[in-house]
Nucleic acid binder design. Structure first.
Length: 647
RNA sequence: GCCCAUUUAGCUCAGUAGGUAGAGCGCAUCCAUGGUAAGGAUGAGGUCGCCGGUUCAAUUCCGGCAAUGGGCUCCA
């Protein structure tokens, strides 16, 4: 039979040949390095039998699907090693993930790093044994019996989830057999380099009501060099971690007695925070927003109307008895600004002519996150967000949504984060309706409207089922931190529910009352989180326009201090943030310290500069860039600021 | 909230087989007045996260709590 290859050539194989046979027919070297096949554009196991006329592409480790197969097999090798050491271990699931693999297991003993070393040793043996992975199938009943006979309780459950009567697939390597849909690589011998990275807890099926299993994370590669590079990359990431750098550079700190998730922004952190806030508020004003300043707390009554009391109470800090048994009203710190801004909308009778009404607010919020959730400046109990609400008529919805989306993208470009984001269309989970307010019809409408708008913008987005807010679907702009963990940066939401609850209306052309649609949106998201991501993105060297300290003047000797201070005044008048290093240190030391602080520009001032009325300019990335007049310097800096230059 | 690990000077980290501790950086004082990534000397600074227990004696062992980190669940 003839098989088509990507280069347009054809390969002649005997009937029933597999993708792996095809690789062998081309060359043994290729067969060693391919891990997965793409047959007629579908990802398939190498064991898949080919048919006349199939198009075959063989994928090596540089392809994500090949990596996943490789890591999936690695997780089986780890499971096999675990079973050899702990025969009573029960296996749950063991998939490949974006940067490695894990396996969830139940085992009596609490595993330690010593156990990881033992498991690694056993894995080395399994790799040396170079076992083949053999594919097989069983009937539904046989599969359940197999799992029961082997005391694999979790596998029993997994099989029971499959449609009764279906054929169940397995992979076997040596004495170890695992329920698995595949695909897998051919032999254990290919996994030449691996490392088990950490142990953590994970609920069975991700449900906190279930038993907590032990999860072991690992990563593996076809050779030692790649593993070494990967581990070095992880080390590098640690150095950029905002939680370390942000503290070292004096952006923020935490204090036990203040509490979890309540960081203190220090002068540098607060300065950048202020710069970002002003930038956002100014841009919003240009785009027709009206600023509000609303209370940080309210009576329970307000949250009862909004639905927070029933659907978000666990997330709120409540002052007083939540049950209000003593007859006294409970108050709560606000977890969102929407109900407050709606009161301002409701303070007048609105005409369709008034719409759209765009409110923005630099808005401090309080959310009572579970204690295990807090992380640096990323997850907090008190944070500040560029929150706004746009009240629109139905025919303004699309334009205003796109306007909010455009503002968000403008911010992302200004921050230089455009290459690090992705879009997620977050919809509700139909099977979990208790989480949401409103009737399904409204949800359908909101989601369809949003999807149509998104499709018209032409952006690539993923769908996040169950990621919606309790009142409506969201477009989330997602960003990955330095460790690859994803968080929401910015969100734009459509709400068809709350206007009704708050009795928000406008008078239409026919003199009739109508509920507006509401767009909830952030333009830069949460400032603390944004700051964290910027610190990581720029390894602490924030772009000039948002750097808390832009210029440091370094006098050569004491005699130049006076000239330096005069320069500070002039440059401050020109709109820059300038400090002078007044310490009695050598110039080398002053440069080193300013460099470590990641100050964008250093101006060295000695006799020459004072005499010639110019600056010796040093840039944190480019080093000594020569002398400049004050005018030259100012125009250079202004250009950088205005264009959001990132060095 | 759950699982695991961690918590020693302002910061980064050593250390004590149970007998109250040390380095580097930083800080203070003095000397040196220095031209593009660390000049030198001296000194101050710690109830060894907090609260209990065991012990003649606890920073060290045990328990509880808190905070931090990695995950799970949840979420901006």
């Amino acid at each position: 039979m003839k098989i088509n290859l990507p280069d347009g050539s054809q390969l002649d194989l005997k009937e029933k040949s597999t993708a792996y046979d095809a690789a062998l027919a081309i060359s043994e070297g290729l067969a060693r390095n391919v891990y997965i096949a793409k047959i007629n554009n579908e990802i398939k196991d190498l064991r898949t039998e080919l048919e006349e006329g199939d198009t075959l592409e063989l994928l090596k480790f540089d392809h994500i699907e090949a990596k996943k197969a490789f890591w999936h097999t690695s997780s089986h090798i780890m499971a096999q090693a675990i079973k050899r050491i702990f025969p009573d271990a029960k296996l749950a699931i063991g998939p490949a993930i974006d940067d490695g693999f894990y396996y969830d297991i139940e085992v009596e003993k609490t595993l330690t790093t010593t156990d990881l070393t033992k498991i690694e040793k056993e894995m080395t043996k399994i790799v040396k044994e170079n076992l083949t992975l053999d594919y097989s199938t069983m009937s539904y009943e046989d599969a359940i019996n197999w799992a029961k006979d082997n005391d694999e309780d979790y596998k029993v459950e997994l099989i029971q989830d499959l449609p009764e009567g279906s054929v169940i697939s397995f992979y076997t390597q040596g004495e170890f057999t695992d329920l698995c849909a595949g695909p897998h690589i051919m032999r254990t011998g290919a996994v030449k380099a691996f490392k088990l990275l950490q142990i953590s807890g994970a609920y069975w099926r991700g449900d906190e009501n279930n038993k907590m299993l032990q999860r072991i994370y690992g990563v593996s590669f076809p050779n030692k060099k790649m593993l070494k590079e990967h581990l070095e990359m992880l080390e590098e990431a640690k150095k950029r971690d905002h939680n370390k750098l942000g503290r070292e550079l004096g952006y923020f700190t935490t204090v036990d007695s203040v509490g979890q998730g309540l960081p203190l922004l220090m002068p540098k952190g607060a300065k950048t925070f202020q710069i970002l806030t002003r930038f956002v508020e100014d841009e919003e004003q240009k785009r027709g927003y009206q600023i509000t300043k609303t209370p940080l707390m309210a009576k329970s009554d307000l949250y009862k109307i909004s639905g927070h009391w029933d659907h978000y109470r666990d997330g709120m800090f409540i002052l007083g008895d939540p049950e209000e048994k003593d007859g006294k009203t409970a108050y709560a710190l606000r977890p969102m600004t929407c109900p407050f801004q709606y009161q301002i909308y409701n303070s007048e009778t609105r005409s369709y002519r008034d719409l759209p009404i765009r409110y923005n607010e630099t808005s401090t919020l309080f959310r009572n996150e579970a204690s295990g959730e807090m992380h640096g400046l990323i997850r907090l109990r008190q944070f500040t967000i560029s929150e706004g609400h746009i009240m629109v008529t139905p025919d303004q919805l699309e334009e205003e949504f796109i306007g909010a989306f455009d503002l968000a993208n403008y911010m992302i470009r200004a921050l230089g984060l455009q290459d690090d984001i992705s879009y997620r269309f977050s919809i509700w989970d139909e099977d979990n309706r208790d989480k949401y307010i409103g009737d399904p019809k409204n949800w359908e409408n909101a989601q369809n409207a949003m999807q149509n708008i998104l499709d018209e913008t032409g952006i690539a987005y993923e769908v996040g089922v169950g990621e919606a807010a309790f009142y409506g679907p969201k477009l989330d702009i997602q960003i990955k931190n330095v460790f690859g963990k994803e968080d929401t940066l910015i969100t734009v939401q459509i709400d068809f529910q709350l206007a009704e609850r708050f009795n928000m209306v406008y008078i239409d052309q026919n003199g009739e009352k109508q509920h507006p649609f509401i767009i909830h949106r952030t333009s830069i998201g949460c400032y603390e989180r944004t700051l964290a991501l910027l610190i990581e993105k720029y390894a602490g060297a924030l772009p000039l326009w948002m750097a808390p300290e832009q210029i440091k003047i370094l006098p050569i000797a004491k005699s130049h201090l006076e000239g330096a201070k005069a320069a500070v005044k002039r440059l401050e008048l020109a709109g820059f943030r300038v400090e002078v290093d007044t310490r009695n240190e050598k110039i080398g030391k002053k440069i080193r310290d300013a460099q470590m602080e990641k100050i964008p520009y250093m101006l060295i001032m000695g006799d020459k500069e004072i005499e010639n009325k110019n600056y010796s300019v040093r840039h944190r990335k480019h080093g000594d860039i020569g002398t400049m007049s004050e005018e030259e310097l100012i125009s250079r800096l202004n250009h950088e600021v205005e264009n959001f230059v990132t060095d």
